[in-house]
Design a protein around this nucleic acid. Structure first.
Lengths: 244, 244
DNA sequence: CGAACACTTGATAAAAGTCAAACGACGTGG
DNA sequence: CCACGTCGTTTGACTTTTATCAAGTGTTCG
């Protein structure tokens, strides 16, 4: 049985039976390579597929009528993408590969059967979608009520902590792999202002940079500036039914 | 068997068997009245309960260290509140009654058992949480990339369309039951600026007001100004497994 | 080598916030 | 019943934050 990126990720939260793992791995039977910059899904496309991201990075976004872009979410390996397809036939958001990626598309009906047959997996997915919801509300508060500097700080910390979930090697630096324009589009700022904030934070010794790699020099202070809460720390999944 | 507010709401999306309805109604066995303004849940409280809102209106919000407030969501009768409790033992957000309300708290383990025993209900809840996710990303784009006027317009339309889901009597007016300060806290503006936008929209004949009741005079134009998309129209739940 | 592309910086403009004051509605207690 | 206090709304004057425009500086890659 091929290793399932998604099952591995879920197993970080709760132990899975072999049958469950095998069922999850079936979602990844059709890996597909996509080149950096390529569009995976376009707003208003008719879609019946969801994706597991196996390698690389993907972003979801919308373009407003005036041409401005809001990046909704940046995805990392093991993430589950496009859950909106379960209710909307037309994609509410676009998906683009931020790097060369490997994604595994699967039909929404395959997901439905999985949920029917494996109630524990269904509960786990429900639960993780609730975690995603909290991540979105955190960003909502960030955009609605904090300064440009705070938004940059919390955005960097968020990416940092999400990368650490799957990569234990990370201590205080990581490759952001986003342009300043993309950062701005994620947190509701212009690239010019993002640059000013980053340079300011660099000048204050909060972060440092070298070819796209970000080092967080004072994480505690960054958390304070960004009004950031690490949600990964106190997740508690004992709610999930135990293994049979 | 007492009618279940929640089952009724879900039945608007998909037909439910009697057994499913009955199981759902058990979530509402402990209705509790809460006075307007009362706190239902406080950030960082240890919580193991979720709620179904039966009557009235509730909001969820966070307070940032500088004292400013971000309202995350306004809830209406039939809504399912506090799903974050499934993963976090400490509430990530506060809940306050916006009017006198009747809420039905139930333990998260009751929900777990429901998901185990009724896969169709599990799938339906998963699906509706995906719809909530899309609603949040819509608001994210609104806060991140649109003007104050656009935010007010889309906020009014959102409330309007959500009220219409359960109340067929609504044609073009509704009771907002929010102060301008609360509107501002929901869409990331000050009450002063919300007032200016509302008065401007009133002056332009887009809306009118009389004792807290809002009338939308030009819905098409409001949708254009707010870059608003009505997501309720093209929800499609045929994905859900059919009745046995 | 040169064309893109991302980053950087300065000057200026626009949007929204802050502060302050007044107005009106509503409810309560003397 | 009326006076008064509270709360929400409204408006003006002024400030701050962020956007916009524009011009430069690397850097990378064909």
């Amino acid at each position: 049985m091929a290793t399932s990126c998604f099952a591995e990720r879920l197993a970080k939260h709760a132990s899975l039976s072999d049958a469950e793992k095998k069922a999850l791995s079936r979602l990844e039977e059709n890996p597909r390579k996509v080149r950096r910059g390529a569009m995976i899904q376009r707003v208003n496309d008719t879609v019946t597929e969801l994706f597991v991201l196996r390698e690389g990075r993907v972003m979801s976004f919308v373009i407003l009528p005036d041409g401005s872009r809001q990046i909704l979410r940046v995805y990392f390996p093991g993430d589950f993408i496009g859950s909106a397809s379960t209710i909307y036939n037309k994609a509410p958001e676009s998906l683009v590969a931020l790097s060369d990626v490997v994604i595994c598309p699967f039909d929404k009906h395959a997901l439905r059967r999985l949920l029917e047959e494996y109630p524990r997996v269904a509960a786990l997915l429900f639960l993780l979608s609730n975690a995603e919801r909290v991540a979105l509300t955190d960003r909502l508060a960030s955009l609605g009520r904090t300064s440009a500097k705070a938004r940059v700080a919390s955005f960097l910390l968020d990416i940092f902590d999400r990368l650490r979930v799957t990569d234990d090697g990370i201590t205080n630096s990581f490759d952001l792999k986003l342009t300043q324009e993309e950062i701005g589009d994620a947190i509701g700022l212009t690239s010019v202002h993002v640059n000013r904030m980053i340079r300011q934070m660099e000048g204050e010794g909060l972060i440092s940079r070298s070819n796209g790699r970000i080092t967080l020099l004072d994480i505690d202070l960054l958390e304070e500036i960004g009004h950031y809460t690490n949600r990964h720390k106190d997740m508690d999944l004992d709610w999930l039914p135990g293994l049979p």
